[in-house]
């Protein structure tokens, strides 16, 4: 198989904190347009994995390539790679002192060096994509969680990333707000955005993922398409895990 087929390659990532092994040699490859969904119990290293990909956490060993260029050991070029890997956090992390549109345009201006006018135009366009154009001049404290998360998605998308990394984007949201954010992510998937999504939303996972990766104890325990994982008896652990959520959902 030719290397260039993959937009993102993750190879043998290891990370320990003290005695605790958080990531134990994790590898996977991502094709352009893929939606890979990571599921698994909390504390199994899913967030750490996403952060190792854009080097917000530096892995102990292992390598990451984006478009054939090595992201790990890239020195100050890491700031270039980070632009190309949009990240969305569980708690949004919007810049509290900036309006929605300023949140989206600031990195365009200060990191990409885009002229202010052009950046504003692009920022408004991105806000429209996530249905937040009317809220452009509002500050984060004036937004609901779902709205804030949509702005943070627009902020990441504005950099024209090659890959989007979503770390439990709806875990801090009420169910009805969860829906509006998942809708946005689903649309991105449909439009061919390449993305890695950590989530506990099993319905969403099975409907948008090309591949579901079940993580346990710092490893990818099982991986396959949603159909395989749900029907093939070899994938018992994933099915059990998803089953727990199903029961839980029913109880609610």
């Amino acid at each position: 198989m030719h290397d260039d087929e993959y937009i993102l390659k993750v190879e043998n990532i290891r990370k320990s904190y003290g005695q605790t092994v958080v990531l134990d040699s994790v590898s996977f490859n991502v094709r352009k347009g893929d939606t890979k969904v990571f599921i698994g119990p909390s504390g199994t290293g899913k967030s750490t994995l996403l952060r190792c990909i854009n080097q917000l956490t530096v892995p102990d060993s292992g390598r990451v390539w984006l478009n054939g260029e090595e992201v790990t050991h890239s020195g100050s070029r890491i700031n270039y790679f980070r632009q190309k890997m949009g990240m969305v956090f569980q708690n949004f992390y919007l810049f509290d002192h900036l309006t929605a549109v300023r949140n989206v345009e600031i990195a365009l201006i200060k990191v990409k060096g885009m002229p202010a006018k052009e950046a504003r135009k692009k920022a408004l366009l991105e806000l429209r994509q996530v249905g937040m154009e009317d809220w452009a001049d509002h500050y984060p404290a004036e937004l609901s969680g779902g709205q804030a998360q949509r702005v943070s998605i627009a902020r990441a998308l504005a950099m024209d990333p090659d890959v989007m990394l979503f770390d439990e984007p709806t875990s801090a949201l009420d169910p009805e707000l969860t829906r509006e954010v998942l809708e946005v992510i689903k649309n991105l998937a449909r439009d061919g955005t390449t993305m890695l999504v950590v989530t506990h939303e099993m319905g969403f996972a099975t409907s948008v993922a090309n591949e579901i990766l079940f993580m346990e104890g710092g490893r990818i325990a099982e991986q396959g398409s949603p159909q395989e994982l749900l029907s093939d008896p070899r994938f018992s652990r994933t099915k059990n895990f998803i089953g727990q959520f199903r029961e839980f959902d029913r109880e609610m």
Partner: peptide
């Protein structure tokens, strides 16, 4: 909040930019 510094760096800002543009004004 620490997260804003992380978010700024995730967008490709340097540490100094993140401090100057995001943390310090607040």
């Amino acid at each position: 909040k620490d997260g804003q510094m992380i978010a700024a760096q995730a967008l490709g800002m340097t540490r100094l930019q993140s401090i100057w543009l995001i943390v310090l004004p607040q």
